[in-house]
């Protein structure tokens, strides 16, 4: 077993392609851990901050939002603007136009502004200032299965990577406080900035893929990302019986890459049914094919995380 102050292991669940079942599997993991005789204290993170769904299944009580302040955006004071156009000349984001309400002054479209402040320095009148933006909220909450850290980025905002970093770090500090052995992170789709933030410093990547050309294509990209950041990875195939040829292709790919395939979960209509009830599939349908297969994957994952402890 681990020593008192050792860092909690961090498991990151990724897929590349969206909708492969990351969140349903993460939720089932939360329940399977809690449903033991001596549950390990565990902390869960929903790192898909612009489409955060884990809380819909783990159903935390008493949500106490904490503000997330991201970067700043530029704003023009129309009283000071002399409409010289120096700002729009330096803007590389096509964000500055004549004000639709008053074409005698310039206006900055907050949706297009990147927050670089080039216009602030270009303005001869000092009419432009940077204004910090609240870009979302984050939550630490209790669920029936353990503590959940999740966040809601306001629609269309930037800095999802920073918000991911923030809730992951909060989760890690909390895990130290309660001497938790493991932080499970439900990751975002894709391979860009929030994914990079989500996999930084993790101990194991579980890639949830599906047997389609799309699943395999995106699996390769996400595996490349995990490798780049030196995170050891394993694969599980969800909806594995939907297209057997695709499952074979993934098995072959995993073998060729030397990546362990730790489970195949069959398509099971119990999974969307459980989602609609707002419960992990292992709670509502513990004997379903999907629940049994997820249980296998969970056991293998926990043993992999502990093996790496030594």
């Amino acid at each position: 077993m681990s020593t008192q102050n050792s860092r909690a292991k961090q498991l990151i669940i990724l897929s590349g392609k969206g909708g492969t079942g990351k969140t349903s599997i993460s939720a089932a993991f939360a329940h399977l851990n809690a449903d033991q005789e001596e549950p390990r204290p565990m902390v869960f993170v929903d790192a898909d901050v612009d489409a955060a769904n884990l809380s819909l299944v783990l159903q935390p009580g008493n949500l106490d939002p904490k503000e997330f302040w991201g970067g700043s955006l530029a704003e023009i004071d129309p009283e000071k603007c002399i409409n010289c156009g120096a700002c729009s000349a330096v803007c590389r984001y096509d964000a500055i136009f004549p004000d639709p309400k008053n074409d005698q002054v310039q206006w900055i479209d907050p949706i297009a502004c990147d927050g670089c402040a080039a216009c602030v320095y270009a303005c001869p009148e000092g009419a432009i200032s940077m204004v910090r933006q609240q870009e979302g909220n984050w939550f630490q909450s209790n669920t029936p299965y353990g503590t959940l850290f999740h966040a809601e980025l306001f629609p269309g905002r930037e800095n999802s990577g920073k918000l991911v970093t923030l809730i992951k770090q909060q989760a890690r500090l909390y895990a130290e406080d309660i001497q938790s052995q493991c932080v499970v992170i439900d990751g975002p789709p894709g391979i860009g900035c929030p994914v990079i933030s989500a996999c930084a410093g993790t101990d194991l990547g579980l890639i949830v893929t599906e047997p389609s050309l799309m699943g395999l294509h995106d699996l390769k990209r996400v595996l490349g990302t995990l490798r780049h950041f030196h995170v050891p990875s394993v694969i599980c195939i969800n909806k594995a019986d939907i297209y057997p040829e695709g499952t074979r292709a993934i098995r072959e790919y995993a073998a060729a890459e030397g990546i362990e395939l730790i489970g195949e979960i069959p398509y099971d209509e119990k999974v969307p049914r459980a989602m609609i009830e707002g419960k992990p599939v292992t709670v509502l349908f513990p004997d379903s094919f999907a629940a049994k297969a997820i249980q296998e994957v969970w056991h293998k994952t926990t043993s992999l995380l502990q093996l790496q402890e030594d």
Binding site: G19, A51, I111, G156, E158, S160, G192, P194, P272
Partner: peptide, 24 residues
Amino acid sequence: PGASCSVVETLRGVDFALLVTEPT
């Protein structure tokens, strides 16, 4: 997927957004 800056960049200047969803 998602609803952050990359989606906004895709949507900038379009005439219409066709939203594909599932009833879950």
